[in-house]
Design a protein around this nucleic acid. Structure first.
Lengths: 346, 346
DNA sequence: AGCGTTAGCACAATCGATTGCGCAAAACTT
DNA sequence: AAGTTTTGCGCAATCGATTGTGCTAACGCT
């Protein structure tokens, strides 16, 4: 049972026979400025190390008005896109001597706000708002507390936003799907439903536009029931594709799937089908996952540029420039030639 | 440019015409105990809300010796297993009114220690040590600071550990792979290399034992070069499988892949092969990923019980019992009938 | 009226680190 | 030797919230 009594600079001071202010100066590196002798400094550092002293960041932060914390909220951890963002966020935060705190808010607007408030009560110095349902709601809470913030992945109007070029990505993805279907089957106006996401969200809305314009530019008609974007849950996508299959008695020629999360639901349904049913299918998926690349049908994915998204946010922080209001677009990358072993060798 | 001056209880006190201690009592809920009138309480709450007051957790934590923080270190975010753990960890922490901080340490022992130290300088109240390379090194740092901690996924000797039953999981997985190969091809003693992980790590060591015993129990010989466990990087697995392929001129009959991370590397290599090369392959993978389920060859995966692992750790915390030294085993689940559409319908 | 209770709140110390200021001794100057 | 400068460090206030203690006014009772 280790003692929970923690060492303070006062303990070190009495161990070293000096004052607490000297210890403080030595341990935070200001001792040269404060004209502490090298001998004292080294003695104190040695004692601190041997005693296993740890700074109390609460006391330090309280006094200095700087916590050293930087926060990020994300919709969920359990997803390749967002967890990659966390990974890069951590790296960039540490490179700047910040301590990263990442929390998920499950796309719940209330949770987003309350999470932001809690983070601010721990006195985070910046906040990255990633994929938030209500970026401006969070923004106003941050502004009220004077916390600088940047939106990521979904744009807001009250702070700078770094987002993927969803329109262009979706436009290119849709075209790639149509091209591939034409190459496979010769169909010129195939039935390709749009699946997943939430039509109210900016990203999904832009992707729907890109998707729709791709069809229109090819002179293809668009039907309202072609677009199913009522939510992110895998279950919704699973139910939708099942219903499509049951209604039409077969799969569509292609699918435009709006996220790997929806794709998970689609895959659950696919696993209930006999394999040959998948042979006439081409799938496009907005977002990338390494394991999806080996599926048994032609697949085209959009890989968002996580590095540029996150480092873009940090360069705004570095520059201290939070004035941008027009979203800064980052181009995603189209990844073709995935899946579909069958026809590639046939 | 919002003012960075933050509201304090003193500001609220002068707004309300009371003392700071009254404000404090009202805002932290102890006002009934302190016999503050309901009228004052409500007035102060109203003022605090309208002014957008946020608690300063640094000051509160300093005074109360409780930060309300609970930390967890994980090897990396960008992985289905660990990000699921983060997700459950967050949920459980919040359910206990703790604020979760998750950081990755990239399997670097030095980073593990320094990360633990930094977390403790923010005065986290508990630490979950997940998948650490050096759990006992972290343990001694925690003990020195009097911070209770639990090991997850990899066991230590200085604190309770909750881990998967890696031996049994690997034993079952190996047997399932052998059975499946026999069902597919009739081979009784197929060549099945073990790929990925680090042989020094406890989890990998136990899995190698399970894998080896499964072979021995079937009267199969074991060759030293059958086991390749020099690291986690996808690139290592990719190079290994490529070399195996080039040496033998074909793929092995089966693969025992020790993590989805290694599996990613294997898949990169597979994508360079013509599809029919995969037709004689059975893969077992320790760990689960939803997208891997649709690959083009028979696949058996081990799905670890993330829920039980994390909630198991929390029940130790709830009970305040940090005495256990024998690892607590959680049974993983074998997921069969994945992938391999070809032969399923053929 | 006089006394004990209770209600309602304020005072001031405290948590641990930081920092402006000041002071004594040593070193240097002329 | 007296004055000036430098060296080396300690004092005490401060950050914002919590909490043990104490004080005053109102109330109840006889």
């Amino acid at each position: 049972m280790p003692s929970s009594r923690k060492l303070t600079i006062y303990d070190l001071a009495s161990l070293a026979g000096t004052s607490a202010s000297t210890v403080s100066a030595v341990l935070n590196g200001t001792w040269k400025k404060r004209r502490i002798s090298k001998a004292s400094a080294e003695a104190i550092q040695k004692i601190a190390e041997e005693a296993g002293y740890l700074h109390n960041m609460q006391a330090r932060g309280l006094r200095k008005h700087r916590s050293g914390l930087i926060g990020m909220i994300i919709p969920l951890h359990d997803n390749r896109f967002f967890s990659s963002i966390s990974q890069v966020f951590e790296r960039e935060a540490r490179a700047r001597d910040f301590w990263p705190i990442v929390v998920s808010t499950l796309r719940d607007p209330e949770m987003e706000i309350s999470t932001a408030r809690t983070l601010m009560s721990y006195r985070i110095e910046y906040l990255l708002v990633t994929g938030a349902t209500d970026p401006d709601g969070i923004g106003s809470v941050c502004d009220a507390a004077g916390v600088r913030h940047v939106n990521l992945d979904l744009p807001g109007r009250t702070a700078p936003s770094i987002i993927s070029d969803n329109y262009q990505g979706a436009y290119d993805l849709a075209n790639a799907v149509y091209d591939r279907i034409f190459a496979e089957t010769g169909e010129k106006a195939p039935w390709v439903p749009f699946l997943g996401g939430r039509a109210q969200d900016h990203a999904t809305a832009r992707r729907i536009e890109g998707f729709s314009d791709a069809a229109r530019d090819r002179g293809m008609p668009l039907y309202p029931e072609q677009i199913e974007a009522r939510g992110y849950a895998p279950e919704l996508a699973e139910a939708t594709i099942r219903k499509l299959y049951e209604t039409h008695g077969k799969l569509p020629s292609g699918l435009f799937i709006n996220s790997t999360i929806a794709f998970e639901g689609v895959i659950r349904f696919f696993r209930t089908l006999p394999r040959n049913e998948l042979h006439t299918l081409v799938v496009g998926c907005y977002d990338w996952d390494p394991f999806a690349t080996l599926v048994d049908f032609p697949l085209i994915m959009v890989r968002q540029d996580v590095e540029k998204l996150v480092t873009g946010a940090f360069s705004l922080i570095d520059a201290g420039d939070f004035s941008a209001r027009e979203p800064i677009l980052v181009q995603p990358q189209l990844v073709t030639d995935l899946g579909g072993y069958d026809r590639r060798d046939a």
